[in-house]
Design a protein around this nucleic acid. Structure first.
Lengths: 206, 206, 206, 206
DNA sequence: GATGAATGAGACTTCATTCAT
DNA sequence: TATGAATGAAGTCTCATTCAT
């Protein structure tokens, strides 16, 4: 297949951009963002300093893009597993999904360290929205569907979901990286019980 | 009362140190710490640049001291209120305590912005320990006492407490400052219900 | 002649570097290096502060480069004169060479003050080695050749040469600059006699 | 014996001054003077910062005093040995004296490192003058006396002496500390031969 | 589009010196 | 005398950003 001049250039641009993103990711996982200079990034990406500014406003923009990407991938993969395993019980589904994400983070603390405590409302919300746009999967919609199908009803399901994500994110960060207050394997049962307790609020009395 | 010459100097030192702490606090609540220079701090404190380094290693040390102080004050004041109000029911006590802290944060978002998400395990744990040392109040011990008195029993009460603090901290930050996912007044009922759900796990079947 | 764009940049860089070297030289001859700041250098060179660090690690590196250059030039010029004057007697050659260097230093005490007492083994040795590399002239080799041709023989000619250079350097510095212990013109005969006495040790008895 | 208040104070002052001198000496042998702050000195001396300025103008004055002292001690001790050994031959006397100084420096490289290349005309000259004042010993006078007694005659004996001291000082520094151009034991014979050659210029033809 | 040399503001830190106590 | 807290000028160095090529 012949590749036209134009597409070659576009391809080249994409490579440059990816190099920059990859280089930034590598550095951000090793060092705090304040200790990573644009210089470091371009040197690791193998491009000139000026090139950086052709693609990104500053290093903070590059960080946000990376968080966005990682968060999306994390949820998408977890979601794929959920579909594969045909779990239908509501509480089990939620726990399964969370557990899938946690397993990925345990196996790749770099991502965890990078996303750090940034898996906050901002990113979560954006993630949900992009998910809707991309039509790849819509967490909230699905959450509601499975909930309803299992006889659960929430006044504000989005908030409940957010609350669970935040609880998980903020506590598991220290648990995975520093085993505080407990190692992740010991902490999980307590966390999952608490999540089930929160979810059970929505159980309809029938 | 006669103040000796020496105590005059000591007094003066204390004033300088407080000026620096106060100035740093004011700036940190307005700006991210990376945008606050030692220069800014000393200018606001009305002391010379070199004086800063007589009292603190760098701006990060001053930040840590401030967080420590604020966290302590927050809990202590909330606790005082709890004692005043003679609330004995277990779940009510916990919720009351949390609500007291939240009310203070709502009224002073600056502190919230400053403490930010730093009210994490590290600070929480230190807080508990210092509390024990100071003998001023021991949160965990009290938590356990009230729990037991009300027929609750937790395998790992420290973790449960931590979990609740993290859940509250990470979600209320955005709620108070950005009304996301909901304004704090609308969010509180949902949060409190969830906390009660978590606590109810420890309820002994009698 | 067409100068490509790239060479224009390279040319420009060379100019900047030279400006910095020249500015540093001027300042170092006026003031002790501890009293010369990078700020002073860049101001005199007409470049920005950051530019300095594009070319040199610190002011000490710039000093070393300058000493190296000056020492080289001094010896090279003296050597040229030696060749021009076709002096063949061994002792006369050495004295002539030294005298040439001294004359240059007398006429330019700034260089002397700058090089100061740094014309030591380190620089001398480096100079000899670079000379070998550059193939411009090899002092030791020549020293030996003329010596042998004139019936002199030294067990360790390099050390003898070093000894003479050090003797000259350390005494003439004060003589030229402070006329101590004697003004240079009065000191020279004594120095030269001493050097001849040292050299005469190598005279073969025939 | 009763010590009066006044002498106690004077004694105390002397202790403070000595502490400062000793502390400075220790630091100057470890670090370049530019890297030794007044703060370091007073901390090591166990006195307050302000006290330093009651005794010395700045750290450079303290350095000069120390060099003065060390140089004096060095020559005095060497001189004592000379008298003990009853060496009468002129050249032998000079070599003996120099060798005594070198032996002391070999055994105490700290002093060497400290005096470094400061054993220059300035200090040497001052040393000769102070020696005359103190009447402890007069190097030049003695040099002349022994020379004359042995049938040597110098037009400018002070300069010859200076020349020898400089030659020795500037070359032996690197020889002792860095074994360059040769280790001191290998270098000494060459140096001593050269000194004898210089001295032999003064030998009267009889 | 890509480059990378140049910029210069500004961050952090040290330190000699003063002076009230 | 002795102290040591306070000063603030001055130093080194970094880095995001621009712009001529």
């Amino acid at each position: 297949m012949v590749i036209s001049m134009k597409s070659k250039i576009i391809e080249n641009k994409k490579i440059k951009e990816n190099n920059l993103l990859q280089a930034a990711f590598n550095l951000f996982t090793k060092e705090d963002i304040t200790n990573v200079s644009v210089n470091d990034i371009v040197k690791n990406a193998g491009v000139a300093k000026g090139t950086f500014y052709l693609y990104f406003k500053d290093k903070y923009q590059i960080r946000d893009i990376l968080i966005q990407k990682e968060a999306h991938r994390l949820f998408e993969e977890a979601h794929k597993q959920l579909e594969k395993n045909d779990i239908r019980n509501f509480e089990d589904s939620v726990i399964f999904l969370i557990n899938q994400v946690l397993i990925r983070l345990e196996n790749n603390p770099l991502i965890l360290k990078f996303v750090e405590r940034n898996l906050s409302w901002g990113v979560f919300h954006t993630q949900l929205n992009t998910a809707i746009d991309n039509d790849s999967f819509n967490l909230i919609k699905e959450f509601n569907e499975i909930a309803t199908a299992n006889g659960y009803e929430f006044e504000n399901s989005e908030v409940i979901l957010y609350l669970i994500v935040e609880l998980t994110g903020s506590t598991c960060y220290n648990s995975i990286l520093h085993s505080q207050p407990l190692p992740i394997e010991e902490y999980k049962p307590i966390l999952f019980d608490s999540i089930r307790a929160i979810l059970s609020q929505g159980k309809k009395k029938s």
